[in-house]
Each structure stands twice: as C-alpha cells, then as structure tokens.
Computed example of a mutant assay.
Amino acid sequence: MDIAGYNMPEELYYDTYHFWTRVDGDTLVMGMDDFAEKLAGQIVFVQLPFEGKAVVAGKKFAKIESGKWLGTVYGPVDGEIVGVNQELESNPALINQDCYGAGWMYRIRPKDPGQLSRLIHGGRDVLEPWLAEDIKKFKQD
C-alpha cells in the first residue's frame, strides 16, 4: 500500500524504528521498511549476527549504516537468530533496491509468536497516522 510515497505492505508488522517483520512458517523474516531506507540513504553496512544469537524484544542486537546515518536494529520479539542474509555482506544496497524482498536482513525463531501483537499492524487506518506522524517528525529534524 502506498502511503505518502512510501510502500508499506499492510500484511507486515512494523516496529517504531521502521523495521518490518513477516511470518514465514515457524520463523519471522525481518528487514528495514521503505520509509527508513529512503530516510537513511544508500545503505553501506549491515551487521550480520551469528546464528544462535538471542534476540530480546526492544533490545538492540545489530547495527546498520548508510553514508550519513548509523542505526540500531532492535529485536521485534524474543527469540533466536536462525538465519541472516549473507548477500548483504557484499551488497548492502539490496536494502535500497528491494527492502521487502532480496533486501531482507534476519530470520528469527520466536519464543512466543504472540509478541507480534505488540507491533504496528493493520490497514491504512493504522499505518497512515503512524507514518504521517513520523514523516512530520523527521522533516522537522
């Protein structure tokens, strides 16, 4: 779904830092959303933690960097890293090219999939006000 020029698929779950999560069987796939990747500019580095690393909801577990920005990646849920997108090691710009597809970042096995309910999820009536507020906030900075 297009919201103010940003592609925000409504089937995904979003955290307040603009990372998305998608359910894929018994794991979750995670990446950076369209708003964040456009705001950050060209992505030049993505930290790829080792498989087996514990992830705690709301706690930082990795870093991502562009030419003008250094960001932190926070756990969407409690769980464990069970996969990373190795392609990002040599081509982190995949996030800019296809943030919801080839630019995915991490695969997580959640301890409690019910924690997804804490994330932002829904149609335009949910996503548009949230995104509009962040657009306004970041345009002022």
Rank of each mutant, 00 (worst) to 15 (best):
S66K: 07
H121K: 02
Q47H: 13
L88Y: 06
I43R: 11
G103T: 00
L94V: 01
V82G: 02
A93C: 02
G114N: 14
Y100G: 02
P110N: 06
G83N: 15
L88A: 05
R118P: 00
K59T: 02
F50V: 08
I81T: 12
R118Q: 10
A57I: 06
F45K: 06
N91L: 12
D112Y: 03
G41S: 12
G114H: 10
A62F: 08
G71A: 12
G103R: 00
K111V: 05
K59P: 01
H121S: 07
F45V: 02
G71I: 06
H121I: 04
G58S: 11
I120D: 11
I108V: 15
W69K: 07
F45N: 12
I64K: 02
D112A: 12
L39N: 15
A54N: 09
L48Y: 06
P76L: 13
N96Y: 07
E80V: 10
E51T: 14
G114L: 07
A62N: 07
G58K: 09
Q42C: 01
I81H: 06
K59V: 07
I81R: 10
N91C: 09
S90N: 14
L70G: 08
V44Y: 12
Y74E: 02
M105E: 07
Q42P: 01
V73N: 03
G52A: 13
P110L: 08
A62C: 09
E51Q: 15
E51R: 15
L94T: 02
V56D: 09
G41Q: 09
Q97V: 04
A93G: 05
K53Y: 08
T72L: 08
L39R: 15
V84P: 02
A57N: 11
G75W: 10
S66E: 13
L39P: 02
I108H: 01
P92V: 01
A57S: 15
M105L: 09
W69F: 06
G71K: 03
F61Q: 07
Q86C: 05
G101D: 03
I64Y: 10
G114T: 03
D112E: 15
Q115H: 07
V82N: 11
G114M: 09
A57M: 14
Y74I: 00
E51I: 12
G52V: 03
S66Y: 14
S66N: 09
I120K: 12
F61W: 12
F50D: 14
A57V: 04
W69H: 07
W104H: 00
H121R: 08
L48D: 07
Q47L: 06
G71P: 05
V84A: 12
G122A: 07
N91M: 14
G67Q: 09
F50I: 05
A57R: 10
T72K: 14
L39W: 14
A102V: 01
I43D: 11
G103D: 02
V55W: 01
I43A: 11
G83R: 10
H121F: 12
G79F: 13
Q86T: 11
Q47M: 13
G101F: 05
G79N: 06
K53Q: 15
S90H: 04
A57F: 08
A40L: 11
P92I: 04
N91G: 00
V77S: 05
A54L: 11
G103W: 05
